[in-house]
């Protein structure tokens, strides 16, 4: 195994622990917005679709890539906007 792969594996394991730590003590009231926010964050997959789209030369990869960019954007924009709408409701309380 190359050092680079090994480093990636270390990073992954650290991230798993970090993810657990971040969520463990959140009050249940915030579970829905938190799930929704996490949902928007995995929209980072959009970066991958931009990269494949930007390197596509043939028709089929172009079409698929274009669809992928649209779907990824839906995930990102929709995710963050929905989360923001939910959290707006919480803000009014103060």
């Amino acid at each position: 195994m190359s050092t680079e792969t090994l480093q990636l594996l270390y990073l992954i394991i650290m991230m798993i622990f970090l993810g657990v730590e971040l969520i463990m003590h959140v009050p249940s009231v915030l579970h829905t917005p938190l799930m929704s926010g996490a949902n928007a964050i995995h929209g980072v997959v959009i970066i991958g679709s931009i990269i494949v789209m930007g390197q596509a030369t043939e028709t089929l990869p172009m079409i698929l890539g274009f669809i992928a960019v649209i779907l990824g954007t839906l995930n990102v924009v929709g995710g963050f906007v929905v989360t923001n709408r939910m959290l707006e409701m919480f803000k009014k309380r103060q």
Partner: peptide, 11 residues
């Protein structure tokens, strides 16, 4: 992508 993905996967 790796960090965002794994973070959400674990969380």
């Amino acid at each position: 992508m790796l960090i965002g993905g794994i973070l959400v996967g674990s969380a």
